[in-house]
Amino acid sequence: MLALIDYGAGNLRSVHNALQAAGGEGVQVTADPEAVRGADRIVLPGVGAFAACMNALSAIPGMVPALHERVIGGGVPFLGICIGMQLMADAGEEHGRHPGLGWIAGSVRRLAPADPALKVPHMGWNDVTPAREHPLIARGEAYFLHSYAFDPADAADTVAATDHGGAVTAAVGRDNLVGVQFHPEKSQAYGLAFLARFLEWRP
């Protein structure tokens, strides 16, 4: 069973649709920590602000401990999308400093393109350029929509980058964890192919 975590994220429905289109069977949209403990694959969606998302996730009694137990303890494949990816960091610096799940060392900081003519939010299709070999990451173009980006403390945790007036983290990964800044659920064929690889992933 794939647990798609429902904590009120705005892109929940689109992610659900895309997982099904990518061939996902047994996708369960859930806010139940017990379901998380029984999941063999977990997806955390998210759009909006870091603190608001972390607060909403933490507001579900037992959810954060259940995620930690199943993902870090149990080692099941985990995918974080957009803010769901940023929440894997130690902390986010959007509207003050807020703690994240702390699964991948690093902070989430506001984009500061070197060229002042470049716009923030970084919005639209851009490159996904692999930083190293990773079974889920393919070179291509995906849809980005964000004003903050994950800055991993260990460069080895960056598995793909994009460019918006300087390198911006497009994906992070370690062991059974992967997180993408782009929106696979909105990246047409590229995004569905990525989700299909995640559904088959055996880290």
Binding site: V47, G48, A52
Partner: peptide, 8 residues
């Protein structure tokens, strides 16, 4: 924006 994020 405060409820759902500026991006939307």
């Amino acid at each position: 924006a405060e409820r759902f994020g500026s991006q939307c």
